[in-house]
């Protein structure tokens, strides 16, 4: 034990260093002026901002970035709105179809997206929504996880408080907006964050549903970087670096909502 402590500390620090090594090399690679040294261990000049500038001015990268921001924002806002309303209703209102919806949500939670991917693709192609913003947004406009998370959280809102608001004369909509939504804020932020990160990182759906480059998102652009630019690893890494920054920033501000979303059900009873 007595010798164990510093040993543990050294081992831990070593492990963390190993974890961070790829990140360090990412910055090195993204800052390289060319692909001369790919080891990513030492800086050879610092061209990060030139590289970023080149990506942003050359080709359609700004467009992809904008598409990503637009789609991830639209999806996460829609998901929060729909999940908030449905999760609250499931937890705290009695209405016909409640049990059916809860069953749907629980089933959807255990389905893999791979199962519904093909029929949704066929459906959207039938109605002409492939290669459209709505076709990239609508399939993710709500989420089973979002509804479920909000519902679990809303079960903590005391029924008496809602009764109090009714006696106060508030309409059900007013109760939802003025009482439930503020109280559900942590859950809603968790859903917002999780869905934004998921969409920011969504490759397979745009890959299927957006063949037109006008609609490409960052993941799609990154996955096709070679096709568009040839093998230029320092630029590709710089582009990847750009795609990594918004989630990291978002995460650093909303960390506790992310962790609470993660551990829901895992740790708590």
């Amino acid at each position: 034990m007595r010798i164990g402590r510093p040993l543990t500390a050294v081992a831990l620090i070593g492990f963390v260093a190993l974890m961070l090594l790829p990140l360090y090399s990412m910055i090195v690679l993204a800052s390289a002026p060319d692909d001369g040294d790919l080891s990513g261990l030492g800086f050879h000049g610092f061209a990060l901002f030139d590289n970023i500038g080149q990506i942003m001015t050359d080709g359609r990268f700004p467009r992809y970035l904008m598409n990503s921001v637009l789609i991830a924002s639209a999806v996460s806002v829609l998901d929060v709105a729909i999940s908030a309303a449905a999760g609250y209703a499931l937890a705290r209102l009695r209405f016909p179809g409640r049990a059916a919806l809860l069953n749907l949500v629980v089933i959807a939670l255990s389905l893999t997206p791979a199962v519904v991917m093909i029929p949704v693709f066929v459906m959207l192609s039938e109605i002409g929504w492939l290669n459209s913003y709505q076709g990239l947004i609508a399939p993710f406009a709500a989420s089973a996880l979002g509804v479920f998370l909000v519902r679990q959280f809303a079960l903590g809102i005391p029924v008496q408080m809602l009764h109090a608001a009714r006696v106060d004369g508030a309409s059900e909509l007013r109760i939802f907006l003025r009482i439930a939504v503020p109280l559900l804020r942590p859950a809603l932020l968790t859903v917002l964050l999780l869905q934004f990160l998921a969409q920011w990182d969504n490759l397979i759906w745009p890959l299927i549903a957006a063949s037109e480059q006008e609609l490409w998102t960052l993941p799609l652009a990154l996955s096709s970087f070679e096709g568009e630019h040839g093998i230029v690893y320092h630029l590709q890494t710089a582009a990847a670096l750009i795609s990594i920054l918004p989630p990291l920033v978002l995460f650093s501000f909303l960390q506790r909502y992310y962790v609470s979303g993660l551990t829901l059900g895992g740790v708590k009873r």
Partner: peptide
């Protein structure tokens, strides 16, 4: 019941249509 159904309607449509 009306409020509940109204609030849940978008989700119901979504889960029926997309799942």
């Amino acid at each position: 019941a009306r409020a509940g159904a109204g609030l849940a309607a978008p989700a119901i449509v979504y889960f029926v249509l997309f799942w």
